[in-house]
C-alpha cells in the first residue's frame, strides 16, 4: 500500500519557549531523525480544530530535534500555542521548497525578516552558521512591531555577538525603554555592508514588506534574480491536492513556499489573485 500523505505522526513536546506574548516555540524529539531542508514546513494539527502550515524553525543539522515557532492568531494556532510539555504535537511533513543554501555557497547572504518571518529563516541561519566557511558575509536584518514582539531574542543577541555576523534589529514602534532602531526594515538595508554583486538575499515577512524589501534591494544594486522569498496562503493538504494555496498557476505548498522573486513578483502585484 502506498504511504498515506494524510496520516500524521504525533511527537511528544519536550520543550516550550514563550518567544513573545503570542508566539511560542515547540520542540519535539522524533523517534527517527526528521530530515528537512531549511524553509520547508509541516502541517501541525490541533485536536478538533484542524491543521495549519507552520515553518520548521530548527537546525537542519540536528534532525533529532524538530522545532516549530508559531504565533497564535486563530482557532488552530491558539490551540497549538496552548500545548504544554508532555502533550502530543501532531505533524505531517516536511513539505515544500527550501531556501537556496546550496546556490548561496560562496556568496554573501543577506537575511531580511519581519515579525514571525524570522522563523523559517532561523533554520537557514543555523545551517549557514554550521557551515560558516562555505559562505561570505552574513547579515541579518530583522524588523518587528515593537521591542516586545522580537522573536528569538536570545538567538539575536548571540548572533549579534559574533564577529562574523552583522545583526540589525529595528521596530515599528519602540517602548520608551527601547534604545535600538525604530523604523521600517527597508531603512536599514543601505546601512548594511554587503556587495550587491555577490549577495543572495532571503526575505520573509508580510507581502508588502517583502515587495518593498525587494524594491530597496534593487535600489541598492541587486538584481531581482538574487532575491528569494517565501509565500503563505490557505493550505489544507501540503501536497498540491487541495487547490487552496494557488497564486495564479503556483501551488504554493508544492512549488513554493520559497521562490526566486522574479517568478512570483508579477503575481504578487495582482489583487485577489
Amino acid at each position: 500500500m502506498t504511504h498515506d500523505p494524510f496520516i500524521p505522526t504525533p511527537h511528544r513536546i519536550v520543550e516550550k519557549r514563550q518567544e513573545t506574548l503570542d508566539t511560542v516555540t515547540l520542540v519535539v524529539e522524533p523517534e527517527t531523525p526528521f530530515v528537512f531542508a531549511p524553509g520547508q514546513f509541516n502541517m501541525l494539527y490541533a485536536l478538533g480544530r484542524g491543521e495549519v502550515p507552520i515553518s520548521i524553525s530548527g537546525d537542519p543539522g540536528e534532525p533529532s530535534r524538530l522545532v516549530h515557532t508559531l504565533r497564535a492568531v486563530g482557532l488552530v494556532t491558539d490551540a497549538l500555542a496552548a500545548l504544554e510539555v508532555g502533550a502530543s504535537l501532531v505533524v505531517r511533513g516536511p513539505f515544500g521548497s527550501s531556501w537556496p543554501v546550496e546556490e548561496a555557497k560562496g556568496h554573501d547572504v543577506l537575511i531580511v525578516a519581519g515579525g514571525i518571518g524570522l522563523a523559517p529563516l532561523r533554520s537557514t541561519i543555523l545551517h549557514i552558521l554550521r557551515h560558516r566557511e562555505d559562505y561570505g558575509r552574513l547579515a541579518i536584518l530583522y524588523g518587528a512591531r515593537t521591542d516586545h514582539d522580537l522573536c528569538f531574542a536570545d538567538d539575536l543577541h548571540e548572533w549579534g555577538g559574533r564577529f562574523d555576523v552583522e545583526v540589525r534589529v529595528t521596530v515599528d514602534r519602540g517602548s520608551p525603554a527601547w534604545r535600538g532602531r525604530q523604523g521600517v526594515v527597508t531603512a536599514v538595508i543601505d546601512k548594511t555592508d554587503f556587495d550587491p554583486a555577490r549577495t543572495v538575499a532571503m526575505v520573509c515577512g508580510p507581502e508588502v514588506m517583502m515587495r518593498h524589501t525587494a524594491r530597496a534591494l534593487r535600489a541598492a544594486g541587486m538584481k531581482d534574480e538574487q532575491v528569494y522569498l517565501t509565500l503563505e496562503r490557505n493550505m489544507k493538504c501540503g501536497i498540491g491536492q487541495c487547490g487552496h494555496c494557488q497564486l495564479g498557476g503556483e501551488l504554493i505548498c508544492r512549488d513554493g513556499p520559497v521562490y526566486p522573486y522574479p517568478r512570483v513578483a508579477p503575481l504578487m502585484r495582482i489583487r485577489e489573485l
Partner: peptide, 8 residues
C-alpha cells in the same frame, strides 16, 4: 497598498 488578503 496591496496587502493580501486585502488592500490597505
Amino acid at each position: 497598498m496591496h496587502a493580501p488578503p486585502g488592500v490597505v
